[in-house]
Design a protein around this nucleic acid. Sequence first.
DNA 1: CGGTTATTTTAGGCAAGGCTAAAAAAATAT
DNA 2: ATATTTTTTTAGCCTTGCCTAAAATAACCG
Lengths: 222, 222
Amino acid sequence: MLSEAVEDYLKAIYKLEEAGRPVTTSALAEAMDVAAASATGMVKKLAGLRLLRHNPYQGVTLTRAGRKVALEVIRHHRLVELYLAEVLGYTWDKVHEEAERLEHVISEEFEEKIFEALGRPTRDPHGEPIPDKDGRLAAGIQARLSDMEPGESGVIRQVSDSTAEMLRYLGTRGLVPDTAFEVLDKAPFNGPITLKTGETSHVLGRDLAAHIRVETRAEGGA
Amino acid sequence: MLSEAVEDYLKAIYKLEEAGRPVTTSALAEAMDVAAASATGMVKKLAGLRLLRHNPYQGVTLTRAGRKVALEVIRHHRLVELYLAEVLGYTWDKVHEEAERLEHVISEEFEEKIFEALGRPTRDPHGEPIPDKDGRLAAGIQARLSDMEPGESGVIRQVSDSTAEMLRYLGTRGLVPDTAFEVLDKAPFNGPITLKTGETSHVLGRDLAAHIRVETRAEGGA
DNA sequence: CGGTTATTTTAGGCAAGGCTAAAAAAATAT
DNA sequence: ATATTTTTTTAGCCTTGCCTAAAATAACCG
């Protein structure tokens, strides 16, 4: 049985790889909120377990086995998040924290049971894809609201679950996955972006908008 | 935050106390499946935390604070067991193992949510009482099927969740909480006990029968 | 290219919670 | 009452995963 620490490191490495960032010791240490020396230590351990390859002073790459573990943990996390939201009535800003702990302790049977109870879902409450049992993962959405231009329209597809506060803020404004919108304005010098959903308009800072992943609707809805 | 190990020790001590057994180092070590020296070490730690009192070479008694923690863990355990059985469709022989891990990681909110979803229950799938949020616990059933005599009748109220195999065996025979029965025979020299539920009769070894707690029906149903 | 800076790794420690072996205390038996 | 056995405690060590400080390596800059 792999320890919780091992699972968390693999998950963090997977997410860094997925984001296209080189997985350096310092990036990993920052993601895990530990000292760099601690990250080095764990990397050596994981290399010994053949869960990743380590090029000293360079960085780290997950092996197939390591990626499999990471995806299992992510599957647990996202299924649990969705279950908490859909079945137990959690608000979407609270599911992440609870899922962080549950993801490490639920059995395959538990996973299977909630997967079926939810109707074999493919997305979590934040819109992120849920890996299937074999570790296959639908592509995440890459486009960011912050990169859209006035006049363009689209649909919110994912909102990263980084901070609960941000999720509460967006939730109260109805800025949740599958909401259609149109960009009205984008202020220069990294200024706020203005968008419209239905009859309501919203002004969001550029950083916040970067956390919102969107699907762009083919232009010219007119 | 108390560690999982601390919670498990307190739970084990509580159960030994409840069973009326003196909580010696060796009894605790056996319950926790660790060496006696390890139990001594943890006992000293818990005494330092004021969760129990330790009379060296004598034994151990929970303080009010220690008992409170133990009951919280037990509440989590039993609520989770019931949730797994009632909502997720677990068979009753599998709930214990999963609950052993979940009991340590669920939040108060999770506890509250499943408590309400279950309709504020008071008994787990094995018939054991669920402590309330303030740590109040309805009395458990003391009478054992193994102590009943031929001609007596009653209702099964609790089946201890010690081994999954035993629970499967009893489950397939319908010997579950709230089942009425009548004792037909009890063989001497610790021999088997024969009972009838509805039209079916069962022969159970004395050890197995000792795990079944019953409510005796006032004699003379005739 | 050589010197400075930043990153990574090594070295040595600490806290938890296990272990075994040995010592101390208590219980039991003669 | 003493001797033996059992139980408990102490002492010392191990593993995991974290830490800080120092050393090694790589990257950058003039």
